[in-house]
Design a protein around this nucleic acid. Structure first.
Lengths: 123, 123
DNA sequence: ACGCTGTTTAGAAATCCGTCAAGCTAGAGG
DNA sequence: CCTCTAGCTTGACGGATTTCTAAACAGCGT
């Protein structure tokens, strides 16, 4: 809703070009927070590495109970990072490319002042 | 130390190309977690948007006590996102471009499967 | 010695993580 | 239609982290 619109507004000025104001920070921080758990980060990468994936495949990849995985998926969903859709018996998850791209753009340091002194360190 | 070496090893395969294994996820997640707080995200962006900045300038930008800011800076420091250096009376903070770039590379979705269906949404 | 700057410690309140139990939806079988 | 089962989500609860305030501490310059 309005949340989506605001997220779009926060898109896509790199963090290093101009400091985030409080409103935008409050909007983007939950996304980073959602990625701040190892399990959720792995879930996110599993979802992002394929067009879509079934919850059953996600659950079987961890030594965690179903409800726990479901909880983590809910966090990712509420952060706007993934979408879910029920098709028949199974629920399928899919990444939200626009949210993903927004985070990537925020972390684009290439235009930041500090980048000049340290270009190419991540070869 | 060894932590730095492992962080370098996790660099820079995008999350959307291949799913992170548990070890790499455990290594990178703390960085995202550190950015998962609005105050820390703003601190990070303030630090990243200039070559370096004094703690006094950071503290004065928030309605938070000194110790609280210091605590958040410590989290960013221990996550490897920033460096601090004392010069005379004041302490100066500076971004770690390599860590920053690593996170940006992880979120590079351009090579991911889902990117094809949604190119250019972040215009 | 004194003041200024920034960090650390200690403690209370709030939040988060994982499991158990119960609820809901969709398909299969009678 | 009804029931049964499977797949996933939700609610509730103990235990561990996190977050803030206040007070004590350490480094630097005068």
């Amino acid at each position: 809703m309005s949340k989506q619109a605001l997220q779009a507004a926060a898109c896509c000025t790199p963090i290093g070009v101009r400091a985030l104001d409080a409103d935008r920070a409050a909007l983007v921080a939950p996304m980073f927070k959602a990625l701040g758990d190892p399990v959720r980060l792995r879930l996110m990468s599993m979802i992002a590495s394929v067009p879509e994936i079934c919850v059953c495949d996600l659950t079987s990849a961890f030594d965690l109970s179903g409800p726990t995985i479901s909880h983590h998926l809910k966090v990712l969903r509420e952060a706007g990072l993934v979408d879910s859709e029920r098709r028949g018996t199974w629920v399928w998850y899919r990444v939200r490319p626009e949210a993903f791209r927004q985070l990537g753009a925020l972390l684009d340091i290439s235009a930041a002042p500090a980048a000049k002194a340290d270009a190419g360190a991540c070869a």
